[in-house]
């Protein structure tokens, strides 16, 4: 992929997302959720989407708003059910959305595999559980492992703290979560940041996501995510 584009508006940043795309959406609850990009995707209009994210939306904003707008055919996630996941819950109970549950570690590692060109990997997570039914297994060193395939995105929407004009990213605290892994796993990685600084202004030793993984960066005015509080 060519060099990172630094764009002026959210609407430019989410251009070209096609109907039927698989979209990786960063965030763990509200921390690291790319609210502005998801709102942009709602305006952009792509539909019949498969969303890969840890949760299936909280409250009425971000991912929950995308679900509510009827744009999502399927959610691949580890933990949909929460005290404030009512948008998803209603769609699911009405049979209007598909759900694929993936253990959190597998979710992350399967995206990492996609980004690293790993064809598949074996892992003991979920052996003996309902999630293992019908799956290919192999015993390695006396322990049963399940074959896990990569999860690749057409698009990743993530949030980072700061980018430089090369597209290098740094994150902030636990808002990092899925961002660095999703950035590697999508054909087009789109990042919203609080600040864009000139090349050379980020400590090269502290860069978490190198710009090679980043296609588009857009600065957002203020972080709109709030504290979710205890469940």
């Amino acid at each position: 992929m060519s060099r990172t584009e630094i764009l002026e508006t959210i609407d430019e940043a989410v251009q070209g997302v096609e109907d039927g795309s698989t979209v990786l959406v960063g965030g763990f609850g509200f921390a690291g959720m790319p609210f502005d990009l998801v709102d942009g995707l709602i305006r952009q209009g792509a539909t019949d989407l498969t969303i890969v994210s840890n949760n299936a939306g909280n409250g009425d904003v971000g991912l929950a708003a995308l679900l509510k707008a009827g744009r999502v055919r399927k959610v691949v996630c580890s933990f949909p059910r929460q005290s404030d996941s009512y948008v998803f819950d209603e769609l699911y109970r009405a049979g209007r959305i598909e759900l694929e549950i993936v253990p959190q570690g597998n979710l992350a590692e399967r995206m990492r595999a996609a980004g690293a060109g790993i064809g598949a990997f074996y892992c003991p997570t979920a052996v003996g559980t309902p999630l293992a039914e019908g799956r290919e297994t192999r015993t390695i060193d006396g322990r049963v492992h399940i074959l896990e395939y990569p999860i690749r995105g057409d698009v990743a929407l993530i949030s980072a703290h700061r980018a430089d004009t090369m597209g290098n990213l740094v994150y902030r605290k636990t808002a990092r979560n899925f961002g660095p892994v999703m950035a590697t796993a999508a054909a087009t990685t789109i990042v919203q940041v609080g600040e864009v600084v000139p090349a050379g202004a980020l400590d090269p030793e502290a860069v978490v996501t190198p710009g090679i993984y980043v296609d588009r960066v857009v600065r957002v005015e203020e972080r709109r995510y709030t504290v979710q509080g205890a469940r």
Partner: peptide, 16 residues
């Protein structure tokens, strides 16, 4: 039957 499944990191923690 009406429960929405949600596993999070429990299966990874259990074996790890």
């Amino acid at each position: 039957p009406d429960a929405i499944p949600a596993v999070g990191g429990a299966m990874d923690l259990a074996i790890g």
